[in-house]
Design a protein around this nucleic acid. Structure first.
Lengths: 232, 232
DNA sequence: TGACAGAAGGTTGTCGACAATCTTCATTGT
DNA sequence: ACAATGAAGATTGTCGACAACCTTCTGTCA
């Protein structure tokens, strides 16, 4: 039994999938989070505990705790005497989210350059993006893009920064899902990244920072009216 | 009644303190938070719901929710099948907290310079610090120091950054409380800040950034062994 | 016709209890 | 003496119910 659990834990080559007895609140929170960041639950949607409990066939306790988890994520807000609702997105907040993204990425660049970390993982992400462009696969491109930026943060070797990034990117996901999908030039998006990698390889801090800022601001250049707010 | 509430809300000059019917979880969370960041609850201390519920004479439900709030704050961690405990502090985590502090302050400086905001509020904080030095009041100096840095973030006009800062500074409070109080030169601490204000006034980005980094690293220059970890 | 008072409805806040799970300790066998 | 098995204890997870609070609708009075 000792070696069995060891196998499952380490190699993950075992026959059995690892048993994961996640608390209900975690499962519920995952479902709700997915619904919110995918845009299925619009900002302003009221989350009524009793209704959710009935839908998911559980009691209110795990629902309450799950909603609280989402509140910590900044996806849900509490409005006095009205209950909880999916957080409304103001233009200002969207701006701040993207500017924070820029702050984080620039900080990551600084650390990567200071520690002279290999940027090979970033090049791999670029390759995945080019592949997605060849296949004309928008979803794959988005995934590779996310992987690129998360890898950038990860290479900075800063766990706290990475956890903040994960939370931030969740909200960016939501914003992208709510935004009308403009006609994006796949090749242009993919093409933005290799120069960043090259600047990092060259140790060119100013250029890397400039490219990151430019890329982020292009993403943030949205139509404020395009974000669907729920009723009210 | 309308004008009464308006008075209380705006001027805060009314006779009555505003009625705040905070949920139990918020009151409980505040108490626990205070205990943790003041160092009265050491890292590693196990938080048993039933015990806390009995001590505070409430049921377990609000205790659970309060502890979850602290978990979101990063002050409590969940260890499988052992319950929740006050989060242990590793040297790495402390380093990351201070490096994040530097990232945030540098970002704030950039924004302040870009927007040409008046730095008068910062000068006021410096005056408070000098007054504290004159009175040889360590507590007042710490308070003024915190006010200075929070003001710096506030002047950057970035709500998201400010909320992250508040959370981060909570943990810095905890670290300072756990750290053996070295003999600090009050005048030296106070003296660090006016040059920052002058650099901001002069629009000298490089100098301001350099001073911030220097100041932060002086704070982070701690003895890793000095942080008391609870039993285990 | 408008405004105020009252009642009804709905939602969150809190509680006590039960169930499930893991840990720890005692016991037994080799 | 050590290891494995079993039982007991403790803690978290979940549930259903009650209470408090605010909102909203309706009815009445000026």
């Amino acid at each position: 039994m000792a070696e069995l659990s060891a196998d499952l834990g380490d190699g993950a080559e075992g026959v059995f999938a690892p048993i994961q007895n996640q608390p209900l609140r975690v499962q519920i929170a995952s479902r709700l989070r997915d619904a919110i960041i995918s845009g299925r639950l619009h900002p302003g949607t009221v989350l009524v505990e009793t209704a959710l409990a009935e839908q998911m066939n559980v009691s209110r306790a795990p629902i309450r705790e799950a909603v609280q988890l989402l509140e910590n994520d900044g996806l849900v807000e509490s409005v006095a005497y009205k209950g909880k609702r999916v957080k409304l997105l103001t233009a200002r907040e969207v701006e701040e989210i993207y500017s924070l993204r820029e702050i984080f990425e620039v900080a990551a660049v600084e650390r990567i350059l200071a520690r002279e970390v290999s940027v090979e993982p970033l090049a791999a992400c670029c390759a995945a993006m080019e592949e997605a462009v060849r296949m004309n696969d928008y979803e794959a491109l988005v995934a590779a893009d996310e992987a690129f930026h998360r890898t950038l943060i990860r290479l900075s070797d800063h766990e706290l920064l990475l956890s903040l990034w994960n939370n931030l990117y969740m909200r960016i996901h939501q914003i992208m899902a709510l935004r009308h999908r403009g006609e994006r030039n796949l090749a242009e998006i993919a093409g933005n990244h290799p120069p960043i990698v090259r600047a990092l390889e060259a140790g060119n801090r100013a250029e890397a920072t400039r490219l990151i800022a430019q890329h982020t601001r292009a993403l943030a250049d949205f139509d404020p009216e395009s974000i669907a707010q729920g009723s009210q």
